[in-house]
């Protein structure tokens, strides 16, 4: 059985590249365009892992992360936070919100794929 991976990002071109990579690795790919949609999808589809953009309109990635950790039904979801802001405080905030990993854009696709593979092993 293949794992479900949710890609939540508001930049369409980044979604294109991420979903290509995840599909290539054999995961089932789900896409969400903003935070609210991401949280809905997580609760409905229960993906094993989420690639979560930190800066989305409406509900930010941090908010989604906190909401997931507070929800007993989906608490175990792995979360990889992606951000275009690489400051220390953002990293700290992401991990504080309960993310399992934190990746700064632009990222190395190989590293990202390896990290996802590790986390789903």
């Amino acid at each position: 059985m293949s794992c479900k991976v949710l890609i939540a990002d508001d930049e369409p071109n980044i979604v294109v590249s991420l979903s290509f990579m995840m599909k290539r690795e054999g995961y089932d790919v789900l896409v969400a365009r903003d935070g609210v949609e991401a949280l809905d999808t997580i609760r409905r589809e229960r993906p094993a892992l989420v690639l979560l953009d930190a800066m989305m309109p409406g509900m930010t990635g941090f908010d989604v992360c906190e909401a997931v950790r507070a929800d007993a039904g989906v608490r175990e979801t792995r979360i990889v936070m992606l951000t275009a802001k690489g400051r220390e405080t953002d990293v700290a905030r992401g991990l504080g919100a309960g993310a399992d990993a934190y990746v700064t854009k632009p990222f190395s696709t190989r590293d990202l794929v390896a990290k996802v593979r590790d986390m789903l092993a």
């Binding site: 930049e11 294109v16 990579m21 290539r24 802001k85 854009k105 632009p106 990222f107 696709t109």
Partner: peptide, 25 residues
Amino acid sequence: MSSVTHELRTPLTSIRALSEVMRDT
């Protein structure tokens, strides 16, 4: 500064990711 880095990194992310994808596929 923070906005500039964000705005610069977003296209860079797509460019790098897609280039690497094509290289590796």
